[in-house]
Lab assay of single mutants.
Amino acid sequence: ENVFHPVECSYCHSESMMGFRYRCQQCHNYQLCQDCFWRGHAGGSHSNQHQMKEYTSWKS
């Protein structure tokens, strides 16, 4: 089941984030949609070496 997250992806700027959401544990307010995370995208001061937390629902 695809879950809708009402936040913007920090890389592709999609405002309709579906599926899993990934939030960086080091960068303030840096979040990736499932597609950008799986493709290994990073931007700004974010590094792929940073720990990311996976969210499967909006409330989590």
Rank of each mutant, 00 (worst) to 15 (best):
C9F: 00
Y11W: 07
C24K: 00
V3W: 04
Y30N: 02
H50V: 01
C33R: 01
K53E: 10
Q49F: 07
G44T: 05
K59N: 12
M18Q: 15
S16P: 10
Y22R: 05
Y22F: 05
N48A: 11
N2W: 04
G43C: 10
M52V: 10
M18I: 10
M18S: 14
C36K: 06
F37Y: 09
H46V: 05
N48Y: 04
R21A: 11
H13A: 08
Q25M: 13
M52G: 02
Y30R: 04
Q31S: 11
M52A: 02
H41G: 04
E15P: 14
E8N: 06
T56E: 15
N2L: 07
C12R: 01
G19L: 07
H46K: 08
P6K: 10
Y55I: 09
H13S: 08
Q51F: 02
Y22W: 09
S10P: 03
P6T: 11
S45R: 07
T56Q: 12
G43I: 01
Y11N: 05
Y11C: 05
Y11D: 04
R21H: 15
Q34I: 00
H46M: 06
C33G: 01
M18T: 13
E1C: 15
W38P: 07
R23A: 09
K59P: 10
S14E: 09
E1R: 03
K59Q: 14
Y30T: 03
Y11Q: 05
S57Y: 03
W58I: 15
G44Y: 03
S45V: 05
C33M: 01
Y55G: 09
E15R: 12
H46S: 06
S10L: 01
Q31A: 09
C24M: 01
H5M: 08
G43H: 08
V7A: 13
Y11M: 09
C24E: 02
Y11R: 03
Q51A: 09
D35L: 06
E8W: 03
V7P: 11
M17A: 10
E15Y: 05
G19H: 11
Q31G: 08
S47H: 08
H50T: 02
N2T: 12
N29G: 09
Y30A: 03
C9T: 00
D35M: 10
K59S: 14
Q26I: 11
S57F: 03
C24D: 03
E8F: 07
F20M: 11
H13W: 02
H46W: 03
Q25L: 10
N2P: 08
S16T: 11
C12L: 00
N48C: 09
V3H: 15
Q31D: 11
E15G: 08
E8L: 05
G40Q: 04
H46F: 02
K59R: 11
C36D: 01
E1N: 04
G40I: 05
H50Q: 02
R23Y: 07
L32W: 01
Q31N: 06
Y55D: 15
S57E: 12
G43D: 15
R23Q: 12
S14T: 10
C33F: 01
Y22V: 09
F20R: 15
C24Y: 00
K53S: 08
Q49C: 09
K59C: 11
C27E: 01
R21T: 13
P6I: 10
H41E: 08
W58Y: 14
G44M: 03
M18R: 14
Q25I: 06
C27S: 01
F20Q: 14
P6Y: 05
R23L: 11
S10Q: 03
K53N: 04
V3A: 09
Y55Q: 09
R21G: 07
M17S: 14
C27N: 00
C27K: 01
P6G: 09
H13C: 06
D35A: 08
S14P: 01
G40W: 04
H50M: 02
F4C: 11
H5D: 10
H13T: 09
Y55N: 07
C33E: 02
C36H: 01
C9L: 00
E1D: 12
K53V: 14
H46Y: 02
F4H: 09
G40E: 04
C24S: 00
Q31K: 04
G19F: 05
G44D: 13
G43L: 05
K53G: 05
K53H: 07
S16H: 06
M17Q: 11
Q26V: 15
